[in-house]
């Protein structure tokens, strides 16, 4: 299955969002990022419930400076 992670297409074998985050190394950064799937916020408690679907757009955002 292919998903679009932060704007880049990626072939993945994992099935759920929490597995994808774990695979991409985000587990240690929990609480310091937010996730949007297909332009909708996914709360942290929902990561393990969300099944990935081919073509899904996953965005992971963290804090940065701003004006």
């Amino acid at each position: 299955m292919k998903i679009c992670l932060n704007g880049e297409w990626l072939q993945v074998s994992v099935l759920r969002l929490d597995e994808l985050l774990q695979q991409q190394g985000f587990a240690a950064a929990a609480g310091n990022f937010v996730v949007a799937v297909d332009q909708r916020l996914i709360h942290q408690g929902q990561y393990h419930e969300l099944a990935l679907v081919d073509g899904m757009q996953v965005d992971i955002l963290g804090a940065m400076t701003g004006g």
Partner: peptide, 22 residues
């Protein structure tokens, strides 16, 4: 103090000293 959010990798987030200091 104004802040923003943007797409980041796991490494970006772990190394984000700017945010920790802020």
């Amino acid at each position: 103090v104004t802040v923003a959010l943007r797409r980041q990798t796991a490494r970006n987030i772990e190394d984000n000293g700017h945010w920790a200091l802020l």
